[in-house]
Design a protein around this nucleic acid. Sequence first.
DNA 1: TATCCAGATGCAATTGAGTTGCATATGGAC
DNA 2: GTCCATATGCAACTCAATTGCATCTGGATA
Lengths: 140, 140
Amino acid sequence: MNDFSPAVMKTLLKQAGLRATPARIATLTLLSQSSKPLSHAEVSAELKNLGVDKTTVYRNLNDLVGANLLRRAELGDHIWRFELANHHDEACSLHPHFVCIDCGDVFCIDEKYLQARDFQLENQNVTVKEILVRGHCNNC
Amino acid sequence: MNDFSPAVMKTLLKQAGLRATPARIATLTLLSQSSKPLSHAEVSAELKNLGVDKTTVYRNLNDLVGANLLRRAELGDHIWRFELANHHDEACSLHPHFVCIDCGDVFCIDEKYLQARDFQLENQNVTVKEILVRGHCNNC
DNA sequence: TATCCAGATGCAATTGAGTTGCATATGGAC
DNA sequence: GTCCATATGCAACTCAATTGCATCTGGATA
């Protein structure tokens, strides 16, 4: 992951219309230094030292997802995990993504493998916004 | 989905080494008649009429998954959903699911629209466990 | 730099999916 | 029909996640 300075975090937060509080800067810093997505509980445990309440962590994680600074991933064990949202992803939001159930790594899938077009469902068109494939990657 | 008779359900259960109890037969029958995967809560609500406790439903659904009679799907909303695992055609048991972003409704997608087979990623094979399509359904 | 308030936080209580313990009931092998 | 391993019902419990509310504070403004 990318390792940003607190100053950069502060700027990112303000650009998103959120206050740059110590809890939020610490959350972003922690996730920027992690090699894998972290759960609510894991982030809470880390920020407890700083006196940050777990409710605040929950709310901040959700707010940061809403501001597109974080991405929320479900890896198959019914625990939300959070990671920095790569802005690179926005440009490629239309093609399918692969999420590894084990390590949480996300890969882009070439469209030649899976068409991301709208299709019919019960004789009616539906609008496709995201195609997600979950499974085990080769490192796991 | 396939609509099996109670007698067939009974045979399937016995073959799996499980007792053919009314609750289990009712569970399989319900899922065989559903066009989409159902949650614990939805199955419980249906079987309540028969006097089946929700704990029993939970345990049976999990046992039936263990016996490969059902498949458990996590569709991104932290609710397990269950559907018949089609033994006769392994290749067609891993079909994609559609989840409506607005109403949360879930549909099964015919494989002719989206192939759910393993594929290559960065020149290596990955194992596909779930294919999930998100978008807006026609009612929303 | 002091003031002020919408937005952020801490704490406690609550929700809801899913699990576990245990006493009782029953499927099905004999 | 008898018997017992398995299945069930009921209650209590776990744990992720949310909500309500009083208090605090970042940062815009004067």
